[in-house]
Nucleic acid binder design. Sequence first.
DNA 1: ACACATAACGGAATCGTTTCCATAATTAAA
DNA 2: TTTAATTATGGAAACGATTCCGTTATGTGT
Lengths: 338, 338
Amino acid sequence: MPKVNIKYLASLLNMAPSTVSRALNDSYEISPATKAKVMALAKELNYQPNPYARSLRANSSKTIGVIIPERINNFFAQVIDGLESVTQEYGFHLLVYNSHEDVEQEKKIISYLLGGRVDAIIMSVSSQTSSSEHLIQVQNQGIPIIFFDRIAQDIPTTKFITNDFESGYLGTKHLIEQGCRKIFFLSLSKEITIGKERLNGYLKAINESGLAFKDSWVLHCTQEENKNAALIEKTLFPIDRPDGIISSVEKLAITTYQVLKKTRLKVPQDVRIVSFSNMSIADLLDPPLSTIAQPADKIGIACGKLLMKKLKIKKQEDIQDEVIIIPSVLHIRKSSLH
Amino acid sequence: MPKVNIKYLASLLNMAPSTVSRALNDSYEISPATKAKVMALAKELNYQPNPYARSLRANSSKTIGVIIPERINNFFAQVIDGLESVTQEYGFHLLVYNSHEDVEQEKKIISYLLGGRVDAIIMSVSSQTSSSEHLIQVQNQGIPIIFFDRIAQDIPTTKFITNDFESGYLGTKHLIEQGCRKIFFLSLSKEITIGKERLNGYLKAINESGLAFKDSWVLHCTQEENKNAALIEKTLFPIDRPDGIISSVEKLAITTYQVLKKTRLKVPQDVRIVSFSNMSIADLLDPPLSTIAQPADKIGIACGKLLMKKLKIKKQEDIQDEVIIIPSVLHIRKSSLH
DNA sequence: ACACATAACGGAATCGTTTCCATAATTAAA
DNA sequence: TTTAATTATGGAAACGATTCCGTTATGTGT
């Protein structure tokens, strides 16, 4: 069976390949009669255009690279769902990569993508990413790149985040209002911006309230879950343990819950907890977890729309260097209530 | 700035494109000296081969299409992580699509992929998928396709599942041993195989124990969460309500928990629950949920290895028509204990 | 010294589409 | 009626990498 390509169709129809191509693309230059004939045969033989040939010719793949630091995470999954809902309408495909919070992995992925396999990149950097040399290259190659949540501040492009500072502030203030006097902050990394912003919001709330803040109130966690658990356990054991905890990422709140289960401490009686999290079942935890939920789907949709605008419209101006903030929502549940 | 391609490199080096290509691919025909020169310049100019040109020539894209019915789901995310860990080593890329449990969407995705955008497809069918006409086409086009979890039984290829029948049996038996006498089964769809298998295991356990089974013990749920909640609520309200529930999918167990929260019924005192689920925080729920956890990462890795074997080795024999079973693990927690 | 093998490279075709540039036939304008 | 414009199509180049098929040196064996 010969391969069904344009040349083959043309030979069957006694036409030139160029004519067939134009007919299939509904060109105004082709007569309705010819178009009909071509379309009919194409349908009959189930002709599918070769995407590589198209991409090579058009120098565009209709593919977007997505890099996230974690796949087993509601937030990122929701963002991708939102993104896909937009890109799909425009016939774009999503190449998804997990950097596993590893900057070396991230570099590798970027280098794959640099060859032009994708028309654009949308990413959330790993918590290890401090320098952005490997990200600058992407722009140098002329590939649009945008960021969400974990952004690279020094790359001039559009970045989508939530009101991290304000959310950190409000979450902490809520704990203070609930009577907490010793509120610890769980940080995943000093490197990433969201960590800093959320921390700054926390610090502002602490300062405003006049609590006797000490540097030891900020726990710097790592990628190693065991170490985090040990660190948190060590923190919760002494008499001068915290009576409130705000976690900058979902994972650390879960670790905290697991550690607390092994102790006699009760939530919220002994320790009150708030966490940044997009867990859908926060209300089913024991006790229900107060969360700062990010508008993941909105972020995904916004990213998608921006990219589609850039990629579909010819001579579109470059992507603006700006930070777009989509606010999070504080869901107060039992874990933080007096 | 001229584009850095093989022709450009060749012109700078005063060599033919064929020589440069061979040098870059470390061909034995090229002298070490020439190779060194080419490599050096390629590195200096940060040459990246054009993937479309390669794909067009080689008729392979080093890309695998992944279709899942749900993205916000630990199981599928874990499978993809496992899959990626293998494919990445071989330089393969993953194009991920969400069918949203919608068979029409599934057909659309398949038709995109039919053009040859991917070298193989790995998928879990939607719960609506009863016919597999659209899937047969894939094989007709010569694109390898394998299934996991939600499989299409009549497509001759390798399918990876867990011991669904046995797990359904063991989960139900466990509930019986814990004193349940009226055990309901939550089914997402009559169409998909895993639903049937798990149901059959449940039925076997029920029959063996001599409980007075009625058809109404099997609740057929849908994609609409509201309807499912209403159905479950209606079931739990009467005096002759179930004292045990086994859920064939995670989502329905969560809905059940949410419904139960609104009632006075206590878990496990009044109703004991077991669910198929890969939730990592099952032990943090109130009460901790007994789960039948599928070996998601193993499934992903197994799929990846099979595909890499097929795609990397020339003249590899076709993928076997067989069902490979990787057993699940029953984690007993408080929700099902007497 | 001659035939022959091998090493190292160049030239051109190829993959499938799209598009630039003709060209023939028909139609409209002068 | 002649020229210009339009319509509908064909031919060939181009996208970038790979590979088939030569070709020229150099080396080896007798």
